[in-house]
Design a protein around this nucleic acid. Structure first.
Lengths: 183, 183
DNA sequence: CAGTGTGAAAGTCTTCACAGCT
DNA sequence: AGCTGTGAAGACTTTCACACTG
């Protein structure tokens, strides 16, 4: 809506867009403040800005990538992260044949450098793009290094402490989530 | 656990693994049947099989891919789908320069062929790997063709009827889900 | 005695419906 | 008239705690 230049919207319009109820929209927003005007609805521009602040998307976040295979190196040449507030700042791998090589404009560093890099640069997010068998040990290393958010491409469940958040990207898993409802 | 050759597990062990309560595990399973033995727990092999049946993962599903750019063609050379029960059966694109070209062992067909292909082959799942600006119209076409599950790689929200299920893969969106909890 | 399956209780989330503002 | 923000009601989910079983 914001990109389309729309000026005002309502809880009803947002609800239809998202497939939930208008009461849900209003109740959810009410937990963070009063953003609407009776009779008018919500200013798209200011609601957009409020939501960016609420979700902490009003700043740039740094991101390291562990694993310099297919997925990892695809990230290096994809501008979508930087455009949307996530700056890729370093690549790591534990394979001696890959350490020292270039991935995009980055030189791959050894996994043993992760802890010092993360603490010196206050990085909070990491992407795991290593084979499934190494993913848990990389996760442990990241947690010990101080990483608080992990985007995991390995098709395996990670065990991490409560205060660390993990998001999973596994195309097959996503397909599997839908089959229950079919046939 | 199954791959590791484990014979028995308990609601407590599963709960710790998944980070939820043991009562939740037992209650959830109880909605589908009685799979455990008092004093012993659950047989890993038979629980695995029961879950595959409950989730409809005890069969092979077919999958078409719309969009033959970077993401689409990566799928063609990735064996993980077939290994885990999802067979990629056709590629489509609306770009005349791509229609007729080969992607892996597939010949890219025109989007106008989707409806007949889907109904003739009873395909239920599709992957959308087209630029964001075309994603909604592709989704509409897929829904009209009879597709019931969509895996969407375009960084945009899709509007579809209730009976169609959509899963989103957008790395930045997944990162954005975590920032609220940080800083 | 370890561990399930399950009613009942507690807790959480969603919807209703309306006073009140623009 | 149109739409928000919100208590209260209703619906749903999770946890408790225990009778019962192998």
């Amino acid at each position: 809506m914001h990109e389309g230049g729309k000026l005002y919207t309502s809880s009803h319009e947002l609800a239809e867009w998202l497939g939930i109820s208008s009461a849900q929209i209003r109740k959810d927003l009410s937990h963070f403040g009063e953003f609407g005007k009776q009779g008018t609805g919500y200013s798209v521009a200011s609601l957009y800005e409020e939501l960016r602040q609420i979700l902490h998307l009003d700043r740039e976040w740094q991101l390291i990538v562990v694993g310099s295979g297919n997925i990892g190196s695809a990230v290096a040449s994809y501008s979508g992260f930087a455009q949307r507030g996530f700056r890729v700042v370093a690549f790591f791998d534990n394979d001696p044949n890959k350490v020292g090589a270039k991935v995009g404009s980055f030189i791959v560093q050894d996994n043993s450098e992760i802890a010092s890099y993360v603490s010196e640069n206050h990085v909070q997010h990491a992407m795991i793009a290593v084979p499934a068998q190494y993913a848990q040990q990389v996760a442990d290393l990241l947690v010990d290094s101080g990483i608080r958010g992990i985007l995991n491409y390995a098709p395996i469940n990670l065990s991490v402490p409560d205060y660390v958040h993990v998001e999973y990207i596994d195309p097959v898993l996503h397909l599997q989530k839908m089959t229950y409802y079919l046939e």
